[in-house]
């Protein structure tokens, strides 16, 4: 019985292995994970804003392609899209990032995430009261000025909690970059842990990386939830005052 327990323990939680793996996970893997998450999110947010505007367009010829884009990218497994774009673009002669794996990975993950970001933005923009828009247009502000000075700043407040939640998903999605090939210094947390796990034939390095992922994601999740509650609370009291 105790031998069985010991084996389970040493398979996942070998303290020596965890301690041995942590420095590289933290000094090489963590910065790479964050770097890739930020790049992918930047691409995702920029594209997501555009697509969200398209989703809200009055023109069917704009709205339908945007809808299709969102449905397709949300409907495919991440791993498939990362392979198709990350390996497919250079194979097809579109080596837009040269030999830089991160470029393709950030683009692939960014494209996937842009579909999710677009839906978040769409919901955020739609949550801005119609009256705010009418008031802005009544002063002579153009559609674009209203978007920029009223809808985006107001929508952004409501959108920030779900946006941050999505960022957590991006952090996790970046582990797929290993599919596209990484040099030693490019490896992010998962790749480093995977290598160490294989070389030592023990899963504890993966546990080490898992702990770092959790240290990133769990506090963020709770912070976002608290934040979201505060915004919702503020909105409902405000609504009572307004009426």
């Amino acid at each position: 019985m105790s031998e069985g327990f010991h084996r389970i323990f040493s398979t996942f939680f070998d303290p020596g292995m965890i301690v041995q793996a942590l420095p590289e996970v933290l000094t090489v893997g963590l910065p790479n994970t964050l770097l890739l998450s930020l790049f992918a999110s930047a691409i995702g947010i920029a594209l997501g804003l555009l697509v969200a505007a398209g989703l809200l367009s009055g023109y069917t010829s704009v709205r339908l392609p945007c809808r299709g884009y969102v449905d397709i990218l949300r409907g495919l497994p991440h791993i498939l899209t990362v392979y198709l774009i990350g390996q497919g673009l250079p194979l097809a002669g579109l080596a837009i990032f040269g030999g830089n794996t991160y470029g393709y990975a950030a683009l692939a993950i960014g494209l996937i995430e842009s579909a999710y970001f677009a839906e978040i933005f769409r919901a955020g923009f739609q949550s801005v009261e119609r009256g705010q828009v009418e008031a802005a247009r009544s002063t002579g502000m153009t559609r674009l000025q209203t978007m920029r000075h009223i809808i985006i700043p107001q929508g952004a407040r409501r959108v920030l909690p779900p946006l941050t939640g999505q960022f957590i998903l991006v952090i996790k999605a970046t582990s797929l970059v290993y599919l596209l090939g990484l040099t030693a210094s490019q490896r992010e947390m998962f790749a480093i842990a995977q290598d160490a796990a294989i070389n030592n034939a023990n899963l504890s390095p993966l546990t080490a990386a898992g702990l770092v992922y959790l240290a990133l994601t769990i506090p963020t999740t709770y912070a976002v939830n608290a934040w979201d509650r505060r915004i919702r609370g503020a909105r409902s009291t405000h609504a009572v005052e307004g009426d």
């Binding site: 392979y83 250079p90 090939g181 030693a184």
Partner: peptide, 14 residues
């Protein structure tokens, strides 16, 4: 520089 790939198919593509 050594680049690690998960399998031969992906390194061949690369």
């Amino acid at each position: 520089t050594i680049k690690e790939f998960p399998n031969i198919a992906s390194s061949t593509n690369a």
